[in-house]
């Protein structure tokens, strides 16, 4: 066991972790943030995507102890005062959610993209979510939603 400090969704945590724990396990099993999903467990599918110090990472490919003193955002951290983030709203408005398993990762990849490039082309959006697989094959709707999210964010 080891004690680490980290920040998740603006909140400071002081948690005990096992040495062989992944960041994904820490988020889901210790902090009960189950919005982050485990898909393939080997960095191919992006279902476990979270934002760490401003960039997207697969949380199945980060050891929990590596997250010490770092700042993490999960899907639970996006809403503000009970209101959905514009990206989440756009996913709903465009019908970009089918089974929903890939959605948290997709939304966070979209956020990282839009934070860096507020008005991406469709090609740039496809590149931005190229590490997130959707097995309901809803990519067109997802790209539509991220385009719409870019407009919503401009309006805010």
């Amino acid at each position: 066991m080891k004690e680490i400090k980290l920040k998740v969704n603006h909140k400071d945590y002081h948690v005990a972790i096992e040495e062989d724990m992944r960041l994904l396990d820490l988020l889901r099993n210790r902090l009960n943030l189950t919005g982050t999903k485990e898909g393939c467990g080997e960095g191919e599918c992006g279902a476990c995507t979270v934002i760490m110090d401003g960039i997207t990472v697969n949380s199945c490919m980060v050891m929990a102890f590596q997250a010490e003193n770092r700042e993490i955002f999960t899907i639970e951290g996006l809403e503000k005062g009970g209101r959905l983030d514009p990206i989440q709203q756009a996913f709903l408005d465009e019908g970009a959610v089918q089974c929903g398993f890939c959605t948290p990762g997709m939304v966070l990849s979209a956020k990282a993209l839009l934070d860096k490039n507020p008005k991406p082309t469709r090609e740039e959006i496809r590149e931005g979510i190229s590490g997130n697989l959707c097995r309901c094959t809803g990519y067109n709707k997802i790209v539509d939603a991220i385009e719409k999210a870019s407009e919503y964010r401009k309006e805010e």
Binding site: G43, G46, T49, I55, T56, V57, M61, S109, A112, G128
Partner: peptide, 9 residues
């Protein structure tokens, strides 16, 4: 290489 998430780490 890989995907954005892989290239980030």
């Amino acid at each position: 290489i890989g995907s954005p998430q892989i290239r980030n780490t």
